[in-house]
């Protein structure tokens, strides 16, 4: 019988689920299409998994795209060693729960030279641990395509990024030499050593991400929800004060307050916001009236104007 589902079914279809509205359905269909196209056209794809909300949506879509089969490529987490502890615990649970192939990479040079955000500054730290780390991991795995959760609405330089973003063997992105992308026909032809970054969430906005998480009931790292947490104020950011490696500077005190995070990354570089939103409905309600963009809490983007474009040219995701 060719029509029976495999016994190792990963997921029980729920027939009572609320259907997606046409808007989210269209975005979901597009993302699934991209996932399938890349998986079919490339020899060795990998999915960059940062444990954040966009990665969580990306993973959910990947599982949908290949159901009833397994996700046919590994997840790659480029760790810096400075992630929130709750992120790592959550990540390990997800990998186990969904039976995923998983790769973790920490730049050995950075580790050996004890590169930290405190000693090297956010720019150099990010360059070594993220950009260089990512390049190392992609080269080591021989991956010719890497899925990422970037959205075009995130930052001005992303607005022109293609869904298939072509990279040289040195992982460089040349904004002037992008291939035209017409209809939903993607050109996946590359030479040996070259690669493509594929962005299934290109057309999603932050609100879309949150609404999709809500309708699809996608689990998230609890840091996205407000809770009474310890923090210190540094350079105008609220830094979570849970990791023993955070040393207080003169004049700093640990404060307590109901805070949450709009994006997750390295705890010393990611600022929290004061919030009372303890669940998804409340987070979305806050978002609908929010007047500050989500990247505002990130130290990386503020280093200099045009900083994201510069990082991307050098191979940062």
């Amino acid at each position: 019988m060719p029509s029976t589902l495999p016994e190792t079914e990963l997921h029980n279809p729920q027939t009572t689920k609320t259907p997606l509205d046409p808007h989210l359905k269209a975005l979901e269909n597009e993302a699934i299409h991209i996932f399938r196209e890349v998986a079919a056209e490339f020899e060795k794809p990998v999915m960059l998994y940062s444990v954040g909300k966009d990665s969580s949506v990306l993973l959910h879509l990947a599982r949908k795209a290949f159901y009833p089969g397994r996700v046919p490529f590994p997840l790659l987490h480029v760790n810096t060693g400075w992630k929130f502890a709750e992120m790592i615990a959550f990540r390990n649970d997800i990998v186990k729960k969904y039976d995923l192939d998983f790769i973790e990479h920490i730049n050995p040079r950075g580790k050996a030279e004890n590169v930290t955000p405190f000693t090297h500054g956010s720019a150099l730290f990010t360059d070594i641990m993220k950009t260089e780390g990512l390049r190392q991991a992609l080269d080591a795995g021989g991956f010719d395509a890497a899925f990422g959760g970037a959205r075009r609405d995130e930052e001005a330089s992303r607005a022109k990024e293609r869904i298939y973003s072509f990279r040289t063997p040195e992982h460089r992105w040349d904004p002037r030499a992008q291939r035209p992308e017409l209809w939903n026909i993607y050109n996946g032809m590359i030479r040996k050593g070259e690669s493509v970054r594929a962005f299934p969430l290109s057309n999603w906005t932050e609100v879309d991400i949150w609404r999709y998480i809500q309708v699809e009931d996608i689990p998230l790292v609890p840091l996205y929800y407000a809770k009474e947490r310890p923090y210190v104020e540094r350079d105008g950011m609220m830094i979570l004060a849970e990791d023993p490696r955070l040393e207080l500077l003169p004049g700093e005190t640990i404060q307590h307050g109901s805070i949450r995070f709009r994006t997750l990354g390295d705890f010393p570089l990611t600022g929290a916001i004061p919030s009372q939103a303890t669940n998804l409905e409340e987070v979305i309600a806050e978002l609908e009236i929010a007047t500050v963009s989500e990247r505002q809490g990130r130290a990386i983007d503020r280093d200099q104007s045009g900083s994201m474009e510069k990082k991307k040219r050098e191979g940062y995701f």
Partner: peptide, 24 residues
């Protein structure tokens, strides 16, 4: 300035490519 995202464009004062914008 809001629209011309790429540094190369800002420097030359021209728009050289297709950009996608989102609003609701």
């Amino acid at each position: 300035l809001l629209l011309d995202g790429l540094q190369a464009e800002r420097e030359q004062g021209i728009t050289i490519d297709v950009a996608y914008r989102y609003f609701a």
